[in-house]
Design a protein around this nucleic acid. Structure first.
Lengths: 150, 150
DNA sequence: TATTTTTTGATGCATTTACATCAAAATTAA
DNA sequence: TTAATTTTGATGTAAATGCATCAAAAAATA
């Protein structure tokens, strides 16, 4: 019954582990590739949204982004009208590193799906998107302090 | 292209986050439910195997298991012939907590698959198992210090 | 308009995570 | 058997993670 979730967990940990090892050569520490990629793909995004996109805690985002800033991969820009928010943009260095991140991620996807037909790949993606949306509802519910009944 | 991996990552983080929040009432700290469940299902397992099963670093297993031991969820038993290895077994407290872990995990699975037909559920599980096996090969390769070409 | 609530960012603290490295036992090879 | 290699466990160190909490700005409500 819980097997599906376990497979997902194992796959996620293994791939994250591989990426973290491989991206050390880019001077990206654990997990940073996630934030960098999303910022490069959504320039101007704010930290709050980044957390929702990646599904991690706000405080985690803030610290990961701070590190990316001090190491020169991204910059924070103030908003013209809203004093509270800060827009995130990649630097040249960030975009350069992003190329490698994408190449690696694509390679991992190929490895993960190497014996899959096109149809199976599409099927898996469709199913996973539905799972993610289902799970997101409960994640936000529980993160807000609500209790699930089971 | 990399979307499948991202979905997997998001799902895994969200579910892990939910579980960690919910299991604090059992006095299980972050990630410990994973180890406890596997030990309850594989009594006598050794730490090395546990790492392969969950796909985390050896050092992480050792510390998680140590905490589970000091908090009384499991015990380590010496092997009769092999002085190097230590077999892990749940205590009564551990088995009690495991009941809740399973109930929660099953509930999360239901939530994740709530709009899936039986056929879709089975299909997803088959596909994910194949992905996990594919990924495991590279994980062990990279963990051993080998470099992937991409 | 004034008050309340929500949003967004930030930090202190405790904890996990994992790489590098060591050490001892067990296994394999010479 | 002896020497080399692998397995298994362990720890120091550095870093990420996330909860609790604060604060300021913005948005919603009275």
């Amino acid at each position: 019954m819980t097997d599906v979730l376990r497979e997902v967990g194992m796959i996620a940990r293994a791939l994250d582990s591989i990426s973290n090892i491989e991206f050390r050569q880019l001077n990206l520490t654990k997990g940073q590739y996630l934030y960098l990629a999303r910022i490069c793909e959504n320039p101007g995004i704010i930290q709050e949204q980044l957390g929702e996109l990646i599904m991690v805690d706000r405080s985690t985002v803030i610290r990961a982004v701070k590190r990316l800033e001090t190491t020169g991969f991204i910059i924070k820009k103030a908003d013209l009208t809203n004093k509270k928010i800060k827009h995130l943009h990649p630097t040249q260095t960030g975009l350069k590193a992003y190329q490698t991140v994408i190449r690696e991620n694509n390679y991992s996807t190929c490895v993960a799906l190497h014996d899959f037909t096109n149809q199976e790949q599409e099927q898996l993606e469709r199913l996973l998107t539905r799972v993610r949306k289902n799970v997101a509802i409960d994640w936000e519910f529980v993160k807000k302090g609500n209790h699930r009944q089971y």
